[in-house]
């Protein structure tokens, strides 16, 4: 018969202790998120009506809906994505599949990681200097979206590169040995097997873009503009800035209004994240090795 020794028992005890500790940390982590959601739904939930989503703000933004801000955020995110996704994926493909592993590539990779850490206010000021003034786009959706695109590019690149690297190197070697060019290898083997990760990265980036305030504040988002934008050269309202404005800048806003705006914003983000999780699950289910 096997008898547990003193050491076995001690190990088991420490094992339980660690487990408990990690569990507590996890709960601690989820708790604030749940509280935020709860408060938002409690205060903001009753605000959300069809009218709220589809009418313009009135009475100096103390009443009415959020349509221009909602539409503006969609514009900003869409244009930013149109710019950053193709460039980001192309750059990641180059860095992961083509570039030789030398000091230059390594420093570029390092630079990209550091770029992801640049504070958004710095990107904002860069956007003003580069897009608003130098390229003379003025304060416009274009300038704001380009600023957002530059800010999120590193995220797209890193996410894409990581999904590409997750495809085993042996697959590439097998293809090259068959006489496939690098592009054929990417096209037939690497991309089909990394697309889920890339999509996830892109969608996560979308949600980040939707919530940013600083980069669009000086470059294209308007304080109050109760019209829908007609082209990328117009200014627009945006959800994040609207929330900031009605919470801090406008007197006499009913207490529940900011909660409603915040709830819509966070729902947009969460819906995106849910989509990315769904993608992941569908494509994981078809994981091929």
């Amino acid at each position: 018969m096997f008898e547990a020794t003193e050491l076995n028992r001690k190990n088991q005890k420490t094992e339980r202790l660690w487990r408990l500790l990690f569990l507590m940390m996890t709960v601690l982590l989820i708790l604030p998120v749940l509280i935020i959601l709860g408060v938002l739904i409690y205060h903001g939930g009753p605000m959300i009506t069809i009218d709220f989503l589809f009418t313009e703000p009135t009475n100096g933004m103390t009443a009415g809906g959020i349509l221009p801000a909602l539409v503006g955020t969609v514009w900003l995110v869409a244009v930013a994505l149109l710019v950053s996704v193709p460039i980001g994926i192309a750059a990641a493909l180059y860095l992961s599949e083509y570039a030789a592993d030398n000091w230059l590539t390594r420093s570029i990779n390092l630079a990209i990681i550091n770029l992801a850490g640049v504070p958004s206010i710095v990107h904002a000021l860069f956007g003003v200097g580069a897009f608003v003034l130098f390229f003379r786009f003025g304060t416009s959706i274009l300038a704001a979206s380009l600023t957002l695109a530059i800010m999120t590019l590193p995220v797209v690149i890193v996410a894409t590169r990581e999904s590409l690297q997750a495809v085993p190197h042996a697959f590439r070697e097998a293809c090259w040995n068959m006489g496939a060019s690098r592009w054929q290898t990417i096209r037939h083997v690497v991309l089909p097997n990394s697309v889920s990760g890339i999509l996830t990265g892109v969608i996560l980036e979308v949600s980040r873009t939707a919530g940013e305030t600083a980069p669009i504040m000086f470059t294209g988002a308007a304080f109050f503009l109760p019209f829908l934008p007609q082209s990328v050269f117009d200014q627009t309202m945006a959800m994040s800035l609207h929330l900031f404005v009605i919470s801090t800048q406008v007197p006499g806003v009913p207490e529940n209004l900011p909660f409603g705006v915040a709830l819509v914003l966070i729902s947009m983000v969460l819906a995106m994240n849910a989509l990315s999780i769904a993608f992941r699950m569908v494509l994981r289910g078809r994981k091929k090795w």
Binding site: A170, F171, E173, A174, C175, W176, N177, M178, G179, A180, S181, H188, V189, P192, N193, K288, W289
Partner: peptide, 20 residues
């Protein structure tokens, strides 16, 4: 070089079934 490699088939120590 791709034409060259097409003339040479390679089999590795560990089987590499492509995810196809």
């Amino acid at each position: 070089v791709y034409a060259l490699r097409r003339q040479i088939g390679v089999v590795f120590p560990l089987p590499v079934g492509l995810p196809l």
